[in-house]
């Protein structure tokens, strides 16, 4: 009996470890392959030229109309919003605005820099990979869209996003809804049309085209205007590449953009850990139940033996 117990425990542990190793190896090869996704070849993109933006806020107005967003507090031609600070920060996207323009005063320049901001529509979006109900989709056209029907309101996407883009509609917490730019997917992009903000921009600070052509455009603009631009297209490689990209005359960190982001998708930073999660969920319960059963087996055997002895005694009596 004792021999049997030892053997079975050893065998159990051995097979458990083998399964764990196998799961790790399989999971790793899977996730490595998905980390190399460089976006759909014919995906569309937008090149944002910060040197061209004059801060007219037309994009904000067009977005509000196109997406049927609530009435703003101030008219869209009210430029006092550029002086607003919310909790010490410049304006950001929220449930009432999918895009905002902010003004950055440049001490070295005689004019400020304006920066429009919205969802950058990553090639490999962190919001999508973090969502456990698959509420997000990266469409072949390039948009990262969102399905409110399956959303449970966990807001993991808000934490996962390296650009802090998705926002939660706190006014409808019981039917959870994430609010973010969807590249005008339903009304325009799907039909091959440019998003509303691009169409309305008077300065053509926003150029719409195939993502690959947007990169060519940006390269040509940088090359043909020596000294005008920083030699970098923000979003070409950041977090695995984004559909919306930026060129600027000032360093990107001076206009509130994170220049410390990795070139790899956010998923690559967490996939090794994430690969363990299903393993933990599937193997651990069985493993530890087994441990428990084995550990308590001796007690049970003793109990049974005691019972038998008691019965024997009763029989003798």
């Amino acid at each position: 009996m004792k021999f049997m117990e030892k053997l079975s425990r050893r065998r159990f542990l051995k097979s458990g470890l083998a399964a764990t190793a196998a799961a790790t190896v399989i999971k790793n090869t899977d996730s490595k392959a998905s980390g190399n996704f460089e976006g759909y070849p014919d995906g569309m993109g937008v090149l944002v030229d910060l040197t061209r933006c004059v801060g007219c806020r037309s994009c904000e107005a067009a977005c509000n109309k196109e997406q049927g967003l609530p009435e703003p507090e101030k008219p869209f031609n009210d430029f006092s919003v550029f002086d607003e600070l919310h909790h010490g920060q410049k304006r950001r996207t929220d449930e009432t605005a999918y895009t905002v323009v902010n003004r950055f005063d440049m001490p070295d320049f005689d004019h400020p820099i304006f920066k429009k901001f919205q969802c950058n529509h990553c090639n490999e979006p962190a919001c999508l990979t973090s969502c456990f109900v698959n509420a997000y989709t990266k469409t072949p056209e390039g948009a990262v869209i969102y399905n409110a029907d399956v959303c449970v309101g966990c807001r993991t996407c808000m934490i996962a996003c390296p650009f802090y883009v998705p926002t939660f509609k706190y006014s409808s917490a019981f039917s959870p809804r994430i609010m973010k730019c969807i590249f005008c997917y339903d009304t325009r992009l799907k039909l091959g049309k440019a998003p509303a903000c691009v169409e309305v921009c008077p300065q053509e600070a926003l150029s719409f085209g195939k993502r690959s052509d947007c990169i060519s455009m940006g390269r040509q603009r940088i090359r043909q205007n020596p000294g005008k631009y920083v030699d970098h297209i923000y979003g070409e490689h950041e977090v695995g590449g984004t559909s919306w990209m930026y060129i600027s005359s000032v360093d990107f960190d001076k206009v509130g953009m994170d220049t410390t982001l990795p070139k790899e998708p956010i998923l690559n930073s967490v996939k090794d850990f994430l690969a363990i999660v299903p393993m933990v969920l599937t193997i651990w319960p069985a493993l530890f139940t087994g441990f428990h059963l084995l550990a308590t087996l001796k007690d049970k055997v003793m109990e049974m033996e005691m019972e038998e002895k008691r019965k024997e005694k009763e029989g003798q009596a």
């Binding site: 049309k193 008077p202 053509e204």
Partner: peptide, 26 residues
């Protein structure tokens, strides 16, 4: 400037003026 037909023209490898602004932009 951003209609599909115009955008597809930009794929011509011989085209130099691929960054020509539209009328409003110009």
């Amino acid at each position: 400037r951003f209609n599909q037909e115009y955008i597809s023209k930009l794929e011509d490898p011989e085209l130099y003026h691929l960054d020509k602004p539209g009328l409003k932009g110009a």
